[in-house]
Write a protein that binds this DNA or RNA. Structure first.
Lengths: 337, 337
DNA sequence: GTAATCACTTTAAACGTTTAAAGCAAATTT
DNA sequence: AAATTTGCTTTAAACGTTTAAAGTGATTAC
């Protein structure tokens, strides 16, 4: 079946394409189209099952009504959650989302961004990865509207919607201290990303504000390329009789999963042998024998704000700023009292 | 900064847009463009940071190099896995993927498909939902190239890449029988979807072939709208002293998660008190105290085959057929010997 | 010395829309 | 009766590409 285009309807009814376009775009009254023609055009469009060609429309109007979204890894819980939230809000605003996953690779990230820009998306929502500053700066130079979510680069002035990681980590650590913990370990990636560094800062500051001196011994760094073994070594070390921490604060849900797994292997019980707190949740927690207390990012809100901020930008209501969201906290039973 | 278009390069170099187009599309030699002009055009494109407008290109060539993908729910492990696989393969073939999530809703599914078709995607890869036959039939009538993955409608002749659900369930059940289980329960959704029905068929047939009469008592149906409580009731019933099944086969990973959770609540140990087998895996299994044996869909292969089948269709090498894939099996320690 | 060939380059239409501007009868005002 | 207004419709250019076809000046062939 050949594709039905405007002209087919025009011929079928015996009018010009302009008239058809007016009617189909709801400008029938405004453009004073006669009732009969309007009705016949509507009927013909229905009968011929006309579907407007968005590509042609976009070329003419210079608007694609499309948002490009690049997440760090679609397999992360955070990614699918934020994708869902962004899609829902975009839908509400009559926008479509094109998704790409950079798999935490700066090269792939750059490539994806370029593909999306070439496709003339109206704007981008990005979860940047380590070493992707150059791509971001390029976007600024090209004046492509974009907003960052979850992560940003403090030295670049960008629109971004991110968690107040410092505060979330500070509050989480304070909570652990309130629960009576003294030797609180913190497991984080060895990374230059501000969101992760802020978590470490929050942790340290909370300790200091409570008269505890942070110790590097309690802060093993996980190298992303060898995270599994680093986590195992870290856990083994922290729970050894030499160190014997009484709580472990995991800086991400991924770290938490492998950390908890290794605690299982070592036959250590949560929270009897060691208390546990996590940043973000994983579906995996659902089957852990004990509900894991954790800081939870407000994905719904984040997605909504990101879309709205982007659309503001697209409409040139340039309000460049950073939005810091408060974390939610889910208290399970993984911290001894 | 204004967008740089072909004409800008042409003006800058002092040639026609045709020449620029030829050079930038690698037809310099074929179209006998002089070396000097070719070089100057390349340099100008670089200097002006030219990015071809894919929209205009698509309008002219009637090809968008885009695949539309609609998954059932982006939060499913299966969905993010298959999305990743499809994206990777599409990338390899120089195609972009536009993703939508129907959230298991036939109305939303239809809407998404329409949006994608209007955007002139070259073809669709779909995970259809219950009651979405009409949408599928429409696509066939419009002659839009598409392939179904994971689920299909046997009464419709469609290209589809799906697991051999019957065989996977048959083999899984046989495995449980071999392990010495007699009273094997099967927990499945109350659904009209063929992929789920085939699992039930496989389960029943395996029992019968081994001289066990299937009993409805061992096959509680889970209604999607009240799955949590139905699963709980089912588990409680199956493990009651009256029924006392010795193994539970979960037809999906979602059912498995809530089933295992409730086993935890009831303080029943896997596999000591009851053996467990699942269809598909969830990230949640990672933190269950015991590795759960399960049938695993070959996502990588599925995604690759889906993209390739679709591209064949797009190129009019119409090979309409159904591909049934063999399941992988992951044997943990959740089945008593 | 005219014709044909060669090595390039330009012209212009097309893809399917949108939309400002112009067109045209009939009705109304001068 | 001429001019204007009204109510409606068409024309045609534009968006940024691609590409068949035509154009052009120099070289080669007969």
């Amino acid at each position: 079946m050949k594709k039905v285009v405007l002209k087919d309807i025009a011929n079928h009814v015996g009018v010009s394409t302009a008239l058809v376009s007016y009617v189909l775009n709801g400008q029938a009254v405004e453009k004073q189209v006669s009732k009969e023609n309007a009705a016949r055009i509507m009927a013909a469009a229905e009968e011929l099952n006309y579907r407007p060609n968005q590509i042609a429309k976009s070329l003419k109007t210079q608007k694609t009504h499309t948002i490009g979204l690049v997440v760090a890894d679609i397999n992360y819980r955070f990614s699918s959650g934020i994708t869902r939230a962004i899609e829902a809000e975009a839908k509400r605003k009559n926008f479509t989302v094109i998704l790409g996953s950079s798999n935490e690779n700066a090269g792939k990230f750059d490539e994806l961004v370029n593909v999306l820009v070439n496709r003339q998306v109206d704007g981008l929502i990005l979860v940047p990865v380590e070493n992707s500053e150059k791509t971001i700066v390029n976007l600024q130079r090209q004046e492509v509207p974009f907003v960052l979510v979850d992560r940003n680069f403090p030295e670049l002035r960008t629109n971004s919607i991110i968690l107040d990681n410092y505060k979330a980590a500070y509050d989480s650590t304070s909570y652990l201290i309130e629960q009576g913990h003294k030797k609180i370990a913190f497991m984080n990636y060895d990374s230059t990303m501000a969101n992760l560094i802020d978590r470490t800062r929050g942790y340290r500051q909370a300790l200091e504000d409570n008269g505890i001196t942070p110790s590097e011994k309690l802060m093993p760094l996980i190298r992303p390329l060898s995270y599994k073994s680093d986590i195992q070594k870290g856990i083994t070390h922290l729970t050894s009789s030499k160190v014997a921490c009484d709580a472990i604060f995991f800086a991400t849900d991924r770290i938490a999963i492998y950390g908890l797994q290794h605690l299982n292997t070592l036959n250590l019980k949560v929270p009897e042998d060691v208390s546990v707190f996590s940043f973000d949740e994983s579906e995996a927690f659902e089957l852990f024998y004990c509900p894991v207390s954790h800081a939870r990012q407000p994905l719904e809100k984040m997605g909504r704000l990101a879309v709205n901020a982007l659309l503001e930008l697209v409409n040139k209501n340039k309000i460049t700023n950073q939005v810091y969201l408060e974390s939610d906290f889910v208290i399970g039973r993984s911290c001894r009292e």
